[in-house]
Amino acid sequence: MELHNLVQLTTGVTLLTCALAVLGVHTYARGRAQRADLVERLSHTGQTTATGRQRRFGDLDRRLRRTRAGKKLELKLAATGLDVTPGEFFVYMMAGVAGLWLVGQAALAPFFGPIAGLLGIWAALQFLNWQRQKRIERFIGQLPEMARILANATQAGLALRTAIGMAAEELEAPAGEELAKVTNQLAVGHSMEDALGELADRLPSRELVVLVTTLVLSNRAGGQVVGALRNLTETLEERKETRREIRTQLSQVNMTSYAVPVLGIGSLFLMNGVKDGALDRMTGSPIGQACVIIAFGLYAVGFVLIRRMSRIDV
């Protein structure tokens, strides 16, 4: 009798254990699914990434994001569309600076090591600006089509939130990706004004500011947005053609702005190649070092002035 009770108890405990194991596996699978869904949403709001790759330098990245410069860098990286965290970009930039420092010191003279490192920092920041500007230009090129889709959707009776989600599905990157972020921000409780405002901060341009202002005011006042979007579409098409013509006309001037500092740096290699050790002797005295610094400063001023003179706001 006691043996029979022990068998029943053992069987009951085994069944209970199996039931708890099944329940635990089910709970674990559901938790993973919820976490994946949350990561997907947060990736579109810019708070995390859904690429699945292992992020490097996590501690440095968290510390960097707490600083004002880190927040600006994070916003700029989000505008470029690059799959790089602020911590990773900082480490890669420092590695490039160290490499340029050694190359400049070995190929020219020890005095040029720090200058080459500073040029590396400038080049990295310029690369980010170039990537961001290129993405902004692509986004501006898609604005007329985006305004047309929003106008058609709202004219069909759809809500503005639904129209934005439809435009995110139909448009290619970068407009589709940016509107998908706006859609996911609205899904997690952000207001229309905040979500569109963050979009304008990520991709600053006059055209986008006008579109965002039109959508926000129409959504807040409950006005008719179709007519405004129709007129805005025509205006954006005209501005798109004007910007294209200006960019074509100024392409030679922009190339000249980059050619000026390149010629200056090339002349240093030419001098050192003609007479080995000439740069060592030139930078061996305070006067020579001051002359080199002044020359680099003048090249930088020339670059900035040419860029400023060729900038035309439309």
Rank of each mutant, 00 (worst) to 15 (best):
L38W: 13
G81L: 05
G165V: 00
G227S: 15
G104P: 01
V84K: 10
A228K: 15
P261S: 06
L15Y: 09
D61H: 07
G12A: 15
R138E: 01
T183A: 03
R202D: 00
N5I: 14
E207G: 08
L125T: 09
N152I: 07
W130L: 10
L298S: 06
P144G: 03
R66L: 07
G157H: 07
A221E: 05
V260L: 13
A195C: 01
F303L: 11
G266N: 09
A228C: 09
P261I: 06
A228I: 14
E172Q: 11
R308E: 02
V13C: 11
T233I: 10
D37N: 08
L75I: 09
N129H: 12
A109H: 11
L186K: 10
N231K: 14
L199T: 01
A259G: 06
K71E: 04
G99F: 14
L75R: 15
V225P: 01
G81C: 06
N254I: 06
G120S: 15
E234Y: 11
L208A: 03
G297Q: 05
E2T: 14
G117W: 03
P114L: 03
V209A: 15
G266L: 14
F57T: 02
R247G: 02
G58C: 12
L232R: 04
L279F: 03
V25H: 11
I265D: 08
E234A: 14
L215Q: 02
R66K: 15
G58Y: 06
D276S: 14
A159L: 11
Q155Y: 07
S267Y: 02
M1D: 08
T80D: 04
A159S: 15
L100H: 06
G264T: 04
V314W: 06
R55S: 08
L199E: 00
D37E: 08
E74A: 15
L125I: 05
R307V: 04
F127M: 14
T248I: 05
I287P: 01
E178Y: 03
L143D: 00
L196Q: 01
I246E: 07
Q105P: 04
G46M: 01
